[in-house]
Design a protein around this nucleic acid. Sequence first.
DNA 1: GAGTGGTCTAGACCACTAA
DNA 2: TAGTGGTCTAGACCACTCG
Lengths: 233, 233
Amino acid sequence: MTGTAIKNWQSVQQEVLNRINSRVWKPGELIPNEAELASEFGCARATVNRALQNLADSGLLERRRKAGTRVATHPVRKATLDIPVIRNEITGKGYSYRYALIKSETIVPPSDMVARMRLKPNEKCLHIIGLHMAHGEPYVFENRWININVVPDVFGVDFSEQSPNEWLVENIPFTSGDIAFSALTAGTFEAGMLSCKLGEGLFVIDRSTWKHEGAITSVRLVFAPGYRIHTEI
Amino acid sequence: MTGTAIKNWQSVQQEVLNRINSRVWKPGELIPNEAELASEFGCARATVNRALQNLADSGLLERRRKAGTRVATHPVRKATLDIPVIRNEITGKGYSYRYALIKSETIVPPSDMVARMRLKPNEKCLHIIGLHMAHGEPYVFENRWININVVPDVFGVDFSEQSPNEWLVENIPFTSGDIAFSALTAGTFEAGMLSCKLGEGLFVIDRSTWKHEGAITSVRLVFAPGYRIHTEI
DNA sequence: GAGTGGTCTAGACCACTAA
DNA sequence: TAGTGGTCTAGACCACTCG
């Protein structure tokens, strides 16, 4: 006997996981269809469906109508990262938070940024550079461009009080966005901002957000040495 | 009138998104309960539930029993990253793939690795260093420790033919794992492996996988300069 | 205690797609 | 064309938690 009753979708999922891990169902193999599993487990098909769909979302199963459900051979694992507001990320670690505005200007962005934000030629943007500090130490520096046509309200905001990161999150909802993680070699500018050595490897996040085809903002976050993002899989 | 009929959970989700983005429902605000929305949209409560649950998973709504559903004030955005097998990542970009085994030895790991994998003192591990190449160029180098007590089968494998990355994914299912992203400054070893300049900033992934409290493997992947991970949010 | 979301059920129909 | 997963429904009960 199984020992524990199978009555909810979590236990169905657990039982399916067990069969995958113990090789009862091998990679690439077809597993019984939802109706059969439902009758075996003594639950409704919808319950089995919920469990299998969840596992398919995590990449462990591959499902196709008519073809059935298979155990994935090369499971493409999915890692989910939380992207918090920087203030919360810092205070959440138990450090004090401080933000310093370094520069604020309204200028025409460099060509790579014009391309990325799909701006018109010679269209000006608000360019803001700021530094987030944890416990008085530089934590991450923020190099941001804001599309003033999409977000005209920015001119009424005092970004020496509140970082653009927070103001945008609270006030400008976005419909889509993209994010990239990479590494960068510290030049004189980065080293000066983060008070680290020249040539040090730094972690970088590039993020752009959009509101119905119009770029709201594009930002580069360069983190102080030692920063890491961690998650479970 | 809404124009489009609301009959399935996707359209319910879209309509809710619209109301959030257009500030009909403001951040922090309580939205109507599932039963009310169901009757407004003319669908079953389960359909509304599916839509709202999905939005709560993405961090846009906060739901609590009895307290109801609120629009998140500081939405903790979630980014989902695919972690493919390295061969597939490279061939998926249209490059040819090649793997070279650099070193394979059975030794006692350094103390930080003993701690991370929760090994017994003086317990030996299989230590494998290899290089994955794309289009003949170094792409990422893999520094891996494998727990031979949990995975005794590794001794029957020829890791000059198949990278441990692939072999483990195909043969050793894991029950949990963790992954971390960071940056590193290239030392002589890294620069030599990846044929890049000394002191260059490199992207790093550290990953460990577990099988019921026993560490299977712990690996550090150091990527060649220019590598980036990208995803939508 | 009462109101809310979380889930299960049994049945139904639909959408996709392999054969 | 037939078999599979995807989804909707109406109703029910439960679990949690706020007041």
